[in-house]
């Protein structure tokens, strides 16, 4: 169903000419910018159809860490987990949207997991406790990560009422997520201060 909505969004996007850029600044409770936060705009006017992001659906294991730390992936995407290190990794997730376990695999070995439900999937390595990563599975085409300055820019968001969601592990709230309504009319700038 979500996929249907996404497809519908893509269709709407293509079909309407009126769209704007949403710029979101995410700050912590202390006012500090939060990097790697995921900003999502859920718009009823989004065109239907498969969602594509300009980044690959890849989470590399490199230098005993996940690269990127946070990956925004569309629903149904096949995310590959190439091991770039010389050691083996045992990638797993107990998150509800997608529970999986990639048992020990070595260098240049590549595994692929399909994320068919939207939600946040926390991934870790059973061997290396310090390895932690997130795959945010979204069903909206309008999503982006904040940069080091806590800024995220989402373009081609259709005008009209929408819901702005921000997710970050730093956010102390259920599901580490906040949501607020947003009226998109051309370019919009929004500051989100997380709890």
């Amino acid at each position: 169903m979500l996929r249907t909505i996404a497809l519908l969004g893509g269709f709407l996007l293509a079909g309407t000419a009126a769209a704007g850029t949403v710029t979101v600044q995410v700050r912590g409770a202390n006012g500090a910018p939060i990097a790697d936060a995921v900003v999502m705009v859920v718009s009823p006017h989004a065109p239907a159809g498969p969602i594509h992001f300009p980044w690959p659906n890849v989470v590399k294991q490199q230098n005993i860490s996940f690269q990127p730390h946070v990956l925004i992936a569309p629903v149904g995407a096949d995310v590959t987990f190439p091991n770039m290190d010389n050691v083996r990794h045992h990638v797993y997730s107990f998150s509800k949207p997608k529970k999986f376990e990639l048992k020990l695999y070595g260098h240049e070995d590549k595994r692929t997991v399909t994320f068919d439900k939207p939600g946040v999937v926390a991934i870790g390595c059973n061997i290396h406790d310090q390895m932690s990563g997130f795959i945010v599975v979204v069903d909206t085409p309008y999503a982006a990560k904040t940069d080091a300055s806590g800024r995220a820019v989402i373009s081609n968001v259709p005008d009209g009422a929408a819901t702005l969601k921000v997710w970050s592990p730093a956010i102390r709230a259920p599901d580490n997520q906040t949501a607020q309504s947003l009226n998109v009319a051309g370019s919009v700038s929004q500051v989100v201060t997380t709890p």
Partner: peptide
């Protein structure tokens, strides 16, 4: 006396 240890998977669950 209580001792608390977090269960990480890898985030605290």
């Amino acid at each position: 006396r209580v001792v608390v240890s977090p269960i990480l998977a890898p985030t605290e669950i």
